[in-house]
Amino acid sequence: MVSETETVNENEERKLKFGLFLGCNITFNRPDVEQAMRKIFPALGVELDDLAGQSCCPTWGTMPSIDDVGWCAVAARNLCLGEEKGIDLMTACNTCYASLNEARHKMLKNPEIMNSVNEILAKIGRKYEGKAKCRHVTWVLYKDIGLEKLRESIKYTLDGLTIAVQPGCHFLWPSEVYPDREKDPFNPVVLRELCEALGAEAPYYTKLIDCCGIGALRSTDPGKSFALAKDKLECIKEELDADLIVAGCCSCMIQFDDVQDKLRKEGKINFSIPVLHYVQLLAICMGFDPQQVAGICVTPRDEIIKRILEGGKR
């Protein structure tokens, strides 16, 4: 069994390589996030594997709502795709990050679950040994690549911009299950430091760790979901007057992007703050085509992208 903090490809001599785990939302809703990852990682010297045949992580409303073994079996199959190649998975979606790692945690903690899962996997000729895990793009950029290399790799800087970061719940809790952990899960700094490495200000704000309200809440009761998002957006506006919201999670990004438009139309807010996933922001700063790496949005991004490209050339 590999310890929690160890990575499969720890050997510095070896080239960094990860299985790019896409999940559903990025694949179908926001493929610009996928494209951003496909651009930035090779440019940063990280090899990506497609993990051909990967599926849904599975998300909370599916197998996790049925039972542990079914949840873990679907997750384990995805993890196997990496494990068989000796690599870890990497995702830009917090749900995938949480579902895969929580499932792994359950399997490692409870041999009964692990055995039942492997009985099922045997039927498709696979076996999960608990080695491969899912890493978060945020952590890979922060820990494996490092802020210094990011600073060197960008063509445009974000000097003068203020960013409100949104690490997202499943980047933080339950901290026990994740391969990488913030020193203080109630005062996360990794995403802030990543934004600052690009030249922006990314200050703390009061509701930094509050939930965006997407997921089951939004599908069950959109009104309540939007109310939660509004609460947080207003804090971002009032405390930071942010130029940009940067999420580490694709779902949070979608939520804030969508919701602002809806709230504006309902006359509930009167501002518009563009929203990007961090990998998209990085891709733009590295000089990739914004249409490809950040071309899909509801809340307009044109102005901020223009400002970045015009204002921040180094």
């Binding site: 179908f28 493929p31 599975p58 599916t62 249409q291 790496v293």
Partner: peptide, 18 residues
């Protein structure tokens, strides 16, 4: 489909060059 969230339309993927 292997995806809990699934869409048949592929304009978005095409648009970003995937």
């Amino acid at each position: 489909h292997g995806h809990a969230v699934y869409m048949t339309g592929r304009e978005a993927r095409k648009k970003v060059g995937l």
